[in-house]
């Protein structure tokens, strides 16, 4: 008797599942082209990399099993990794939040303008991201000889007499990397904010004015921000992943490897082991650790963002 009931429920469950599947079939069909490609070209390589992090792999011979060895070495024997972690957190804690607020602030300022001027100003602020190779300017600026813009100016004003080797000095390198990174921060999230501000229902502002909203700050906090929660979430994820993965700017500005590892980050460490030393197992372990760090930061920030506008 009891047996029968159980079988019956199982059958029933199966039938229900089929009905549900039939109902949602168009949805699955809509998703399938994207997700087939996504699993083949993104998920599969990522899963492989995580597995490789438990192996020795020099790309010439087949990988051999290493257990937790790569992770043990990373945390207990690799002093340079600790420098990289310290630098990465310092860069991320400064450039992450500032970059995020700057992206929103400028999108909001630009949104105050007439349509044509707005399109133009959006381009102006996005310029560092679209005009590839923008680092050249910063290299000219901080060039170590008397012809570098900064040295020339400071000598001109009589502040210094000898040119300073900005990009060779470990105490200046982190500051310069942070400046350049901030300057490049009006990127993907900035554009998402610009588009998001365009999608806010205009009539909410009129209604708000009637309900006693008196200035642009109240309007921002009570109407604009709550209407833009999805974009705030999106940009937070983008900003976290970008600021914890700083590498390109550091390598371009401070060189690779940089003087006394002053510009060394988790990702430059990963690139060093992956492409210079051909230790793919080790590099994969670094990528996996970074992945976990990003996940943690993301959970934290999402929790905070849920409170916006309340």
């Amino acid at each position: 008797m009891g047996m029968k009931t159980v079988t019956f429920t199982k059958e029933e469950k199966k039938r229900r599942r089929q009905v549900e599947f039939q109902k949602n079939k168009p949805l699955y069909l809509l998703m399938s082209p994207y997700f087939v490609l996504f699993f083949v070209f993104t998920v599969l390589p990522v899963v492989t990399s995580i597995l490789l992090s438990f192996s020795y792999f020099n790309m010439l011979e087949l990988p051999t099993f290493a257990g937790w060895d790569n992770y043990r070495k990373l945390f207990f024997e690799d002093d340079v990794f600790m420098v990289a972690v310290k630098n990465t957190f310092m860069f991320a804690i400064i450039t992450g939040p500032i970059g995020y607020f700057a992206a929103f602030l400028f999108a909001w300022l630009v949104n105050e303008l007439k349509p044509k001027i707005r399109a133009f100003m959006t381009l102006v602020f996005y310029a560092p991201s679209i005009s590839g190779g923008a680092y050249i300017i910063w290299k000219l600026m901080f060039s170590g000889d008397v012809y570098g813009y900064l040295n020339a100016t400071l000598i001109n004003w009589g502040i210094i007499t000898e040119p300073i080797q900005w990009l060779q000095n470990p105490s200046y390198i982190p500051v310069i990397i942070i400046i350049v990174q901030l300057w490049m921060s009006l990127g993907v999230s900035f554009l998402a904010f610009v588009a998001g501000l365009q999608s806010v229902d205009r009539s909410l502002y009129e209604a708000g004015a009637v309900d006693g909203i008196r200035n642009r700050w109240q309007e921002l906090w009570y109407i604009t921000l709550p209407s833009m929660k999805p974009q705030l979430m999106f940009s937070a994820v983008i900003q976290i992943t970008a600021s914890l993965a700083i590498a390109e700017v550091a390598m371009q500005v401070a060189g690779f490897p940089s003087v006394e590892n002053a510009g060394h980050t988790i990702v430059t460490h990963l690139i060093y082991h992956g492409t210079t030393k051909f230790e793919l197992g080790y590099a994969s372990a670094i990528a996996t650790v970074l992945f976990i760090v990003m996940l943690g930061s993301n959970l934290l920030v999402q929790k905070f963002l849920r409170r916006v506008g309340t």
């Binding site: 992956g274 670094i286 992945f291």
Partner: peptide, 27 residues
């Protein structure tokens, strides 16, 4: 819409943004 697997897919998309491309190049 919410359906079987939707939550997992949403999460995987976010997670995939966080994995470094240098090490996935070989696979």
């Amino acid at each position: 819409h919410t359906f079987r697997g939707s939550e997992a897919l949403n999460k995987i998309i976010v997670y995939s943004l966080m994995f470094n491309a240098t090490v996935t190049a070989i696979p």
